[in-house]
Nucleic acid binder design. Structure first.
Lengths: 205, 205
DNA sequence: CGTTGGTTTGACCAATTGGTCAAATCAAGA
DNA sequence: TCTTGATTTGACCAATTGGTCAAACCAACG
């Protein structure tokens, strides 16, 4: 994927288009987003927008690829040779940070999955599955060594995904129910206690 | 809300439209769904569809209202006079059952929230918030009485929402990562262990 | 059988959709 | 300054969108 040299104008406009596209696609999904919408938010005319990206699909695909490129980094960073509980907790906290710092990316991903993952189905059953399986082995090893309580590693990972992404994807609901928007620290503390209790549950016998 | 008398044909066609609409809206959201799409799936012509519902919005609204009508039932059913841990666990299991039995409804809700909850914002900060606050008092009471470990009740409820709805909203991803589709029982066992560990965590001191 | 009210449809509409294209404009280096 | 290539735009297009309407159809009851 060699980055072709870009003029300043290209860099600026492509960035503006991707930013506008992320805003729109993350809210309305691929089909619910229009080129005019993106063009206006990016401050460009529609033909001008299509000068930088050949099609609506190209914008969407570019955003998804950029996302997938970093989406798995927090899980990749969970290392077998660290302290098990702290490694898992640190992973959960990194995911929670991503929900705070990149909520639109999280919602873009959620939208894509809701629609049946038409653009990234292969990625899910390929890269993603392989990575999760690999980390499941690590978690199973920790459990076998008595470092954490026995746990289904796949569902543990699903739990971390759901608990953290919820704060980005359902942000509107969280804000409405809590009546405020400064709940991030509370969420982190709650998540920490929840996972810690499960991982350190005394094994009966 | 008096149900007007309906002919058999009306009942059948309205049901077919709502079913088709649920399919489409839950995948593609409001803006990403077309009337032609719904009409074809319902086996009706577009003008015929519009004979039963005055607009696309009316179909969507009808679905949302039908959903909200039962969406909170599991939480409402959580009673203060039961055994705390079992009440909370039973609530989580009811939500998980809803993810299994009504995944499209869950995705419809998720789509609405992702788009910023334009149709149900009032409901979120009204009914929903009131109900959650009410149950938070109950949970706080259980904690104060030493029946469960101290826990942030709002975030505990968010956790149950996210953990359970994840299996409906991200079903495609779960299937892809696990490589199979018969994971419901495992999910239930995992959820049970996770919440139980947290609720029964020994209070230090 | 005829009528009446519920049901269905083909034709149609204005607005919007994703996308094209040639012409015009602009920026910057020779 | 002139030129060249990058950038921008107005005009345009076919297809699709949500929605309308009058006419036709149909089921059932008197």
């Amino acid at each position: 994927m060699s980055d072709k040299p870009q003029t300043r104008i290209q860099a600026k406009n492509r960035a503006a288009i991707l930013a506008a596209g992320l805003d729109a696609f993350s809210k309305y999904g691929f089909r619910g987003t229009t080129l005019d919408q993106i063009a206006e938010a990016a401050g460009l005319s529609k033909p001008n927008l299509l000068y930088y990206f050949p099609s609506k699909d190209a914008i969407y695909t570019a955003l998804l690829e950029r996302l997938l490129d970093t989406w798995l980094d927090p899980l990749i960073a969970m290392k077998a040779d660290g302290d098990p509980v702290e490694e898992i907790l640190a992973y959960a906290m990194r995911k929670l940070e991503m929900s705070r710092d990149y909520p639109r990316e999280s919602r873009l991903f959620a939208n894509e999955i809701l629609q049946g993952a038409p653009h990234i189905a292969g990625h899910l059953s390929g890269d993603l599955r392989a990575l999760v399986d690999e980390k499941a082995v690590v978690i199973n090893g920790w459990a076998a060594a008595g470092k954490i309580a026995p746990v289904d590693p796949h569902h543990l990972i699903f739990s971390i995904w759901s608990l953290t992404q919820h704060y980005a994807d359902f942000e509107v609901q969280v804000n409405a129910v809590l009546g405020r928007e400064d709940w991030y620290d509370d969420a982190g503390a709650h998540l920490d206690a929840l996972l810690r209790a499960r991982l350190q549950a005394r094994v009966p016998g």
